[in-house]
Design a protein around this nucleic acid. Structure first.
Lengths: 334, 334
DNA sequence: TTTATAATTGTAACTAGTTACAAAAGCAAT
DNA sequence: ATTGCTTTTGTAACTAGTTACAATTATAAA
């Protein structure tokens, strides 16, 4: 029942008194067109507020100039920063960004991916390694340039742009061990369908040596961080320091520790992973391993546009993740 | 040079040994198709990993099932929350979301809007009232269902879904006045091309009565908040309390005040506007007017999908913005 | 077996553009 | 005025689907 108002090329050509081929040539500045015709067509375009249909363009050229990004969630500021970089960089290349969130659910991811393929995205950005078999088959079959982010693995079957998640958590651990901590509580989000969390946990276990871990898997929310602290305080081997695998959980943990009248870092040190914009302004300022998500967005966007434009498959890129030493962790006082 | 690999309907029909009309009927579950044909076609679809082209669909139906969102920036967590709601709600209606950021630049906004019209978005979400003349003409001419967010004005020429920006800042002001403050520093972002900021400032001036304001316009960043505090501390009539029109600037302000060895709220109260997820975990917990952006996203998405599906123009919606009283503002001690 | 009716299927036109190819027009030199 | 060349223009086929309409086939009743 919607009134179709958008003008099409035929109407433009009619109004300008030329053929649609000539009108098309004016719009695309292709082929030679006389000055008279050009002027008439441009006037008609202006008058009709004609905007060429990307769908019709796409159907001829097979090109949509659109890229899809599948992110686990938009809820975390860390992904917002990533998207911002992406969008910025893609806009510079004349590409549009379609965003879909997957909630770390491979089935939902597959569904959203199909939608993106329907739209005709020319490239795809995904997070991590946990995807359904059918998802892999789909991007394989449609030959969709796809870059996996948030981790680095040069042997992965797709180009990867990200950090080494094992090292990320190990940086946090080494710092705490260097401060003398041996009883460490680890707060992390769900491991199901989240390879990055699993990799970070694996990194910790590999480097365990003479530290004892207590693990708490909670939701990746502020409340999840609170819960984890309560678990630790009730556990028999109470840790002297915490590693949180996300800043949001760390924020919750600090807040719960304060509520329990424990001083951070005096009574409990905490080191985290993410480095959200607000983290350095917490009290105490959060010591956390910075995930270079803005750079990741930039590199990933460039990798995808290069792949699309020049058909050259990008190389994997390892981005450094540095620990930002601030105030939330101190040496263990015996 | 890219190898076209995506299968099309003709190939599916050929493989299944039916006509493309029959194949099309199977895919769309329209018209009657024999069980035999259905099975053959579905097998061919599976085998070829066929995904119908949205462009071809769009060209016939004029429908792309895509919506565009023009946001000032993706850098602020407040917009991330808004987008999350949008994406969620649109996904439920089978709509895809294309995101474009405008940097509060009307020319850039126009350019991005044209791109969105090309793509054939069926609806558009914009922020505020500051748009170029040509932008208005465009959405008028192409009859694009457009909802303006982040403010409420039932008399605006488009449906608006948002809060009353004057009241938002007045809530902050009333609270401080109630605490006895009369010298108030106001931190705000650029007013150029930002009607929401201007409305909030207008709200303050309208309610000025016997308070004296000192205004500081700085970038809408943490650093901007720091700068503003330095300005206030050097000004002759030093305020006893601050109103920050964004939480990010408030975070910077608090951090700078601490650096200057001033106690918040003891030496300086501060009330803000936004209520970012992290704000309640700052020290002191930030008293701030909550902007209901998640709800705004939900309502806006529903308004747009209703407009698209049923061609009924939505009503404007005023969302309440409540002040979250926490710890960053206290009564003025004489 | 014939007929009537319903169910299924295929052909071809249509959507909004691009582009190969042929035709027409413009222009200068003969 | 004719020829040869370049420039400009238009026709029609093509992209990947949908769908109206006609044709075919299946099924049941006579």
């Amino acid at each position: 029942m919607r009134s179709r108002k958008r003008a099409n090329l035929r109407e433009v050509a009619l109004k300008a008194g030329v053929s649609i081929a000539t009108a098309s040539r004016v719009i695309n500045k292709s082929g030679s067109v006389s000055e008279k015709a050009r002027v008439k067509v441009n006037a008609a375009i202006e008058e009709l507020k004609f905007v060429p249909s990307a769908a019709a363009k796409a159907i001829n050229s097979g090109r949509t100039r659109t890229v899809g990004a599948l992110v686990p969630t938009l809820d975390n500021a860390i992904f917002a920063r990533f998207l911002r970089s992406l969008e910025n960089e893609f806009a510079n290349s004349g590409l549009s960004l379609v965003v879909s969130s997957t909630n770390n659910d491979p089935e939902l991811e597959l569904e959203r991916a199909k939608k993106l393929v329907q739209i005709g995205v020319e490239g795809l950005l995904i997070s991590g390694t946990d995807h359904s078999q059918e998802f892999h088959e789909l991007i394989e079959k449609v030959q969709l340039p796809t870059v996996a982010t948030s981790f680095y693995d040069p042997d992965y079957h797709l180009p990867t742009i990200g950090y080494d998640n094992k090292q990320v958590s190990q940086k946090a651990l080494r710092y705490l061990v260097g401060l003398g901590h041996k009883q460490i509580g680890v707060i992390h989000g769900p491991t199901a369908n989240n390879d990055r969390t699993r990799a970070r946990l694996a990194g910790l276990n590999e480097l365990a040596e003479d530290v004892v871990f207590v693990f708490a898997e909670t939701e990746m929310t502020v409340e999840g961080g609170c819960e984890a602290v309560i678990l630790f305080l009730n556990s028999e081997n109470r840790p002297s320091a915490l590693i949180s695998l996300s800043d949001v959980q760390a924020i919750g943990a600090i807040s719960e520790l304060k509520r329990q009248k424990l001083h951070v870092p005096g009574d409990m040190s905490i080191v985290s992973v993410d480095n959200l914009p607000a983290s350095q302004f917490l009290e105490p300022a959060l010591t956390t391993v910075n995930l270079p998500v803005a750079e990741m967005g930039e590199y990933a966007a460039r990798a995808i546009s290069g792949w699309i434009e020049n058909n050259e498959r990008p190389e994997s890129i390892l981005l450094p993740a540095e620990i930002m030493i601030r105030e939330s962790a101190v040496a263990l006082h015996q």
